[in-house]
Design a protein around this nucleic acid. Structure first.
Lengths: 189, 189
DNA sequence: TACAGTAGAGAACGAACGTTCTCCGCGCAA
DNA sequence: TTGCGCGGAGAACGTTCGTTCTCTACTGTA
């Protein structure tokens, strides 16, 4: 555990899994220590507080999410297919047995009132996603307001799937996106 | 404070405001006691645990939500108008200065992993809302899959507005609903 | 071999939590 | 007036939290 970067990743990975499964406030730093196999002193030399660790975990989640979206849209050749691939990605995710909703939404609900840094990290991730959607909509020459509508469907699908405990929302949202695209992007392939 | 029902309501009201503003786990029972003006002993004679109080608060929120939806759709004469009225209601809500997202979604993200009762209460409320939407869609002779799509837009609008801190999502979602209705309910007025 | 310096492990700290307990004061029967 | 029972207030309990501190063991140098 000599390498600082390796220790950071070890801690973030362990904290990510614990926070996502049980919620941030339900997990003590002792549990993170045990799961990561890194001493508390070391953890606090890497992250100045639990809050900072939460932000680091959110940034890690952002990278995982971006990778997932990217690899899901890899096979898609058109912007329209890449938009729909988002919802295929969600469908697969919702079916994973340990799916428990969007970590950003959950953490926001739990901590945004207490921690500005957490609220900012969540907002930043959502903004990045919206920009990604907006870029694809622009490629299709679709109207700009279509992008937030698709993003809202993605957000709603995540919360709905988490609360209902079923993956159906992905398909419903995907169908709605197709309807919106058909209606607002007439020239789409 | 003799009347039991009055004391219950006093406690639930105070807890609701505190939980919604700061999150459930960030609020201690002492703070509820102070805000409600009801002794801890009394609170614990009315609710056997904090968990049960949380469930009571969620039920109270359900009633408030139902009232809001009902009064928003009062002026609407058609099922289509009542569906759109949901998003006008959301728009007004998002503009309130102390709007902090959907209490059900927030509480679910915070506690569903720890408390089955809380998870059930949240799921129940969402199910009721989806049934309300489904009834309106059926009135329009729209396809059944339109209902969950509209519900997903409502959920997504709430989380997006909460995280972004702007009320725009209500209008975007409303426009999307109109597009979906136009595409899928051709005979609508 | 002896010693200085560093880093890890986890005990310890003060605060705050959910919950329970003890005390006090009031209303009422005799 | 006296004794009794009930309910409210909030002190107190055991636990757990985030964070810090202390002690130990090991490394590299002379």
């Amino acid at each position: 555990m000599a390498d600082e970067e390796a220790a950071r990743e070890q801690v973030v990975r362990a904290a990510d899994e614990l926070f996502y499964t049980k919620g941030v406030q339900a997990v003590g730093m002792d549990a993170v220590r045990t799961a990561a196999g890194v001493s508390l002193k070391r953890i606090y030399s890497l992250f100045s507080s639990k809050d900072e660790l939460v932000v680091a975990v959110l940034r890690h989640r952002t990278a995982v999410w971006d990778d997932g979206i990217a690899s899901a849209s890899e096979r898609a050749t058109t912007a329209r297919a890449r938009l729909l691939a988002i919802f295929d990605f969600l469908d697969g995710w919702f079916r994973e047995p340990d799916f428990r909703g969007c970590a950003f939404i959950n953490t926001h609900g739990e901590l945004s009132a207490t921690s500005q840094a957490v609220a900012d990290a969540v907002r930043e991730q959502k903004r990045t996603f919206q920009e990604y959607v907006a870029r694809l909509v622009a490629e299709l020459d679709g109207p700009p307001e279509l992008a937030p509508q698709i993003a809202i469907l993605a957000e709603g699908a995540q919360t709905t799937a988490a609360i209902a405990g079923t993956p159906d929302a992905a398909r419903y949202a995907r169908d709605a996106v197709e309807t919106l695209l058909d209606a607002k992007v007439p020239a789409s392939v």
